[in-house]
Amino acid sequence: MKKFLLKRILIMIPVFFGMTILIFVLSNLTPGSPVDAMITADMTPADIEALYVRMGLDQPLHIQYLKWLGRLFQGSLGYSFRTGTAVTGVIGERVGPTLLLTGTALVLAIAAGVLLGVVAACKPYSIWDYMASGLSFIGAGVPTFFLALVFIYCFAVKLQWLPTGGMYANASTKDWMDVAKHLLMPAVLLGISMTGGYIRQTRSSMLEVMGEEYVKMARAKGMREKVVLYSHALRNAMLPVATQIGMSVPFLVGGAVVTEQVFGWPGMGSLMVLSITYRDYPVIMGVTVYTTCAVMVVNLLMDIIYALLDPRVRN
């Protein structure tokens, strides 16, 4: 297990470099210079030149990358072109809301997905089975933003149970009940968009495993159905589900972009969209680095869980 861990962590190094180079090249290919947005009518060409030099944009690309990477390791992501403040600060205040939203959504999605998936598989053609497939089809087929608009129309505009968007009714009193009220709709919606995949995967891999020889064998030995189900079938059926959850985390981040935008949730997703409109490269890079690193760490955790579940993986 130790060897597996070490190997897995070493593998992350080239992945990290590949990722940072890609991000850097990508954001530098973006048409339009960030300086464009800062030029005012009364600036002379010399002023504009000075602006380029001040931002380090006059240097060759690979030097810019190395400098950026060096600063990255020191924990500095540069300064936002839009606000002029440190990127870490700009992102820092957005991390909490995004983690709160995605975390809540993920927990809801996994709980609902595995539970419904198992029940649907064990009692095929029951009401639960139909309910699970219904929900999984809604989750997989209805775009989050459309469902969000419908939810806003129903629960915020017509029934007025929940706020239409934002995170606080009043930013100065950070009341957690108020945050929870604002969180409910976006988290449930983001959860629904994720849970379809989990239900499908759990159900189909449970069904597949139930037909395997070792499950028949366990039954033939006269084991109780519960033991067969949980210690033989579910344990093995969870492998593809664990993969599915790990694989879906980047989509969670992507879904958060749309959800945050619809609800005006002050997270990294809405920051990303805002930064693209302003061509604020340091923030675009920063958000991308942050999110990809987070996804990498989650993937590592998933792989460890995978190895714990399946001894074959460790070797």
Partner: peptide, 24 residues
């Protein structure tokens, strides 16, 4: 598979946003 890992570590939506801006 490492290439797959690199691509899968990217939240696709975010890279798509950047790429669409790049490509127009």
């Amino acid at each position: 598979m490492r290439l797959v890992d690199i691509f899968m570590s990217f939240p696709a939506m975010i890279i798509q946003l950047v790429l669409v801006t790049v490509l127009g």
